[in-house]
Structures are given as C-alpha cells and as structure tokens.
C-alpha cells in the first residue's frame, strides 16, 4: 500500500516530549540482551507484517543478518506454524500473536510452550520487545511510517540502544 501521511507533524513541546520519552523507553528495551538476535528479529517482523508497518517491514537487523537471517527465513513468519522454523522461534511468534491478535484469549498451552524454550526473564524481555516493536501502531494509524528508501535497509543500534540505519541489505 502507498498511503500518504494523514497528518502533518510539526515540532512542538508536546510532540518533542512524546518522541523523547518513547525513544528513551525503546532504547532501554533494545539494551536487554537475553534473547538470540534471530528470535528478536522474527518477532519484530511478525509485528511489522501484522500491523502493516512499511518502515519496519523494510528493515533487517544487522545482528540477525549476521546470525543467518535471509529473505526465505523472513518470509516464513507469515506461515510460521507450518514452516521449518525452530520450535523456540515458533513459541516466541505464538506469544507475539497472542499479544497483538488475541490478548483476550491466551491459548492454554502457551505458558508451557514458552517455558520449554525460555526462562521467565526471557519471556519478560519478549513481552517488552513486542511492546517496543508495536510502537509502529501509532505511526500506521496516521500513515506516517513510509520509509525514505526503496530497498531493504540494515538496522543496527548504538551502545545506548538508539537506532542506526546502515545502508541497503546486500543480497547474494
């Protein structure tokens, strides 16, 4: 979809305070490091696809690329249950779906499914990852999330957890 922005956002004290405090929260979530990069990235991509975030969908985290992420794997998040993705990633994606699609109905098996693959601290980190990656909802609602690039871009974070855009993903 190629929807134009529905509003014009100009700098103001209120806008700056919102952006600053949400960015501070996001950076602190990024600094958590108990999960494998591929788990974090595929959960991020699931959020992007379900919410139809064009910006997030156009990004690939550098750490996940280094860990073996490619477009074949990325595409599997759309039909992960029938895919050959590892069981721990499927469990993480089920949690993402429960949170973003059916929060009023959590499948009974989800708790034991998650416990088989993750510690309680890792599950807590997954939950906050989903909150952080769902920040796109505020942008999608207003269609202010069009990426400034046409290709797929590498995403990395500095030591503070702030995002850095590092050029197009190199395809082989």
């Amino acid at each position: 979809m190629n929807s134009p922005a529905r509003i014009t956002v100009t700098q103001s004290d209120a806008v700056n305070r919102i952006d600053r405090d949400l960015a501070t929260f996001a950076a602190s979530v990024v600094r958590m490091d108990k999960l494998e990069p591929l788990v974090t990235e595929l959960v991020r991509l699931r959020c992007a696809r379900v919410h139809d975030c064009r910006l997030c969908g156009s990004l690939r985290q550098r750490k996940a690329l280094d860990a073996g992420l490619d477009e074949t794997m990325a595409d599997k998040v759309d039909h992960y249950e029938s895919s050959d993705l590892p069981d721990n990633i499927k469990a993480a994606l089920r949690l993402a779906d429960a949170m973003i699609l059916t929060p009023g109905y959590v499948p009974e098996a989800l708790r034991s499914d998650l416990a088989a693959h993750f510690t309680r601290e890792q599950i807590a980190e997954l939950l906050m990852d989903i909150v952080k990656w769902s920040q796109q909802k505020a942008l999608v609602a207003l269609r202010t999330e069009a990426p400034p690039w046409a290709a797929t871009e590498q995403l990395d974070f500095d030591e503070n957890g702030d995002p850095m855009f590092c050029g197009p993903v190199q395809t082989v």
Binding site: I7, T8, V9, T10, S12, A14, V15, I18, L22, V131, S134, Q135, K137, A138, L139, A141, L142
Partner: peptide, 16 residues
Amino acid sequence: DEQIYALSNLLYVMDM
C-alpha cells in the same frame, strides 16, 4: 494534527 499525533500515541501506550 498535533493533538491527533498525541492521541495516536496515547492509544499506543494504553493499548499495550
């Protein structure tokens, strides 16, 4: 538009 931007972010934080 500024208020709508704030509202969209209000919905995000409360929804989450």
